[in-house]
Protein backbone atom coordinates (compact mmCIF):
# COMPACT_ATOMS: atom_id res chain seq x y z
CA UNK A 1 0.00 0.00 0.00
CA UNK A 2 1.34 3.44 -0.87
CA UNK A 3 1.55 5.97 1.93
CA UNK A 4 3.13 9.31 2.71
CA UNK A 5 6.20 8.99 4.91
CA UNK A 6 4.54 11.36 7.38
CA UNK A 7 1.59 8.95 7.70
CA UNK A 8 3.67 5.99 8.90
CA UNK A 9 2.88 4.81 12.40
CA UNK A 10 5.81 4.68 14.80
CA UNK A 11 7.61 1.40 14.23
CA UNK A 12 6.17 1.00 10.73
CA UNK A 13 8.54 0.84 7.77
CA UNK A 14 8.37 1.09 4.02
CA UNK A 15 10.35 1.26 0.82
CA UNK A 16 10.71 4.68 -0.76
CA UNK A 17 8.85 4.87 -4.08
CA UNK A 18 8.83 8.52 -4.99
CA UNK A 19 10.39 11.77 -3.81
CA UNK A 20 7.98 14.60 -4.38
CA UNK A 21 9.54 17.12 -2.01
CA UNK A 22 10.37 20.13 -4.10
CA UNK A 23 13.61 22.04 -4.48
CA UNK A 24 16.16 22.32 -1.72
CA UNK A 25 14.26 20.11 0.70
CA UNK A 26 14.10 17.27 -1.84
CA UNK A 27 17.79 17.56 -2.70
CA UNK A 28 18.72 17.55 0.98
CA UNK A 29 16.68 14.39 1.57
CA UNK A 30 18.39 12.64 -1.33
CA UNK A 31 21.80 13.64 -0.02
CA UNK A 32 20.93 12.11 3.33
CA UNK A 33 20.09 8.82 1.63
CA UNK A 34 16.32 9.08 1.19
CA UNK A 35 16.53 7.62 -2.30
CA UNK A 36 14.20 5.38 -4.26
CA UNK A 37 14.39 1.80 -3.11
CA UNK A 38 15.77 2.43 0.37
CA UNK A 39 14.01 1.10 3.40
CA UNK A 40 12.92 3.68 5.95
CA UNK A 41 11.22 3.26 9.29
CA UNK A 42 9.35 5.77 11.45
CA UNK A 43 11.22 5.58 14.76
CA UNK A 44 9.94 8.37 16.98
CA UNK A 45 7.45 11.19 16.82
CA UNK A 46 7.98 14.39 18.80
CA UNK A 47 5.70 15.47 21.60
CA UNK A 48 4.31 18.30 19.47
CA UNK A 49 3.80 15.98 16.51
CA UNK A 50 5.40 18.40 14.07
CA UNK A 51 8.57 16.41 13.51
CA UNK A 52 9.52 12.75 13.52
CA UNK A 53 12.70 10.70 13.56
CA UNK A 54 13.18 8.17 10.77
CA UNK A 55 15.70 5.39 10.75
CA UNK A 56 17.44 4.70 7.48
CA UNK A 57 20.37 2.31 7.01
CA UNK A 58 21.15 2.38 10.73
CA UNK A 59 21.11 6.16 10.96
CA UNK A 60 18.41 8.35 12.44
CA UNK A 61 17.22 11.62 10.93
CA UNK A 62 14.75 14.18 12.21
CA UNK A 63 12.45 15.37 9.43
CA UNK A 64 9.65 17.94 9.74
CA UNK A 65 6.17 16.71 8.89
CA UNK A 66 5.66 18.90 5.81
CA UNK A 67 8.94 17.66 4.36
CA UNK A 68 8.10 14.02 5.08
CA UNK A 69 4.79 14.49 3.25
CA UNK A 70 6.81 14.76 0.04
CA UNK A 71 8.00 11.15 0.25
CA UNK A 72 5.86 8.25 -0.93
CA UNK A 73 6.62 4.84 0.54
CA UNK A 74 5.32 1.34 -0.12
CA UNK A 75 4.38 -0.45 3.08
CA UNK A 76 3.92 -4.16 3.51
CA UNK A 77 0.21 -4.18 4.25
Amino acid sequence: MEKRLSDLRTGQGGIIKKLEAAGAAGERLEELGFTRGSFVEAAHRSLFGDIAAYSLCGEVFAVREETAEGIVVETGG
Binding site: A21, L32, V60, F61, A62, R64
Partner: peptide, 9 residues
Protein backbone atom coordinates in the same frame (compact mmCIF):
# COMPACT_ATOMS: atom_id res chain seq x y z
CA UNK B 1 7.47 30.65 8.59
CA UNK B 2 7.94 26.94 8.22
CA UNK B 3 10.77 25.75 6.04
CA UNK B 4 12.28 22.33 5.75
CA UNK B 5 14.21 20.89 8.63
CA UNK B 6 16.25 17.74 8.46
CA UNK B 7 18.82 16.96 11.10
CA UNK B 8 20.90 13.86 11.72
CA UNK B 9 20.50 12.42 15.22
Amino acid sequence: GASDFTLAL
